[in-house]
């Protein structure tokens, strides 16, 4: 079980968090259909570091972004979700 350093609560067990999706698969409501579908079905899915949206659902209930290695599970960065990255 991973340990996630919540920017609001500090280090907590993974079981308190829920994975939502990678940042590059967020579909905003004003996105053209082609781009939306590309984000859902043709995203990068790297064998390495990726940026992921998680929620501390059994804690502060805030959305956070993990930069996580998808093979080793190493977490190299955690930050509060900043909506500005979608614009």
């Amino acid at each position: 079980m991973m340990r996630i350093d919540c920017p609001h609560c500090g280090p907590r067990a993974q079981s308190e968090f829920g994975y939502e999706r990678t940042l590059d698969s967020i579909v905003t409501l004003d996105m053209p259909a082609d781009e939306a579908m590309a984000r859902l079905y043709a995203r990068a899915n790297p064998r390495g570091l990726d940026d992921e949206l998680w929620r501390h659902g059994l804690g502060c209930r805030q959305w956070i972004v993990l930069r996580r290695h998808r093979v080793t599970h190493e977490i190299v960065g955690v930050a509060a979700f900043d909506p500005a990255i979608l614009s």
Binding site: I26, T28, R55, Q62, P83, L86
Partner: peptide
């Protein structure tokens, strides 16, 4: 509950 939060806090925080 999570979906409402996702739409509000991630897609439409304004």
């Amino acid at each position: 509950e999570a979906h409402l939060s996702y739409v509000h806090r991630v897609l439409a925080p304004h």
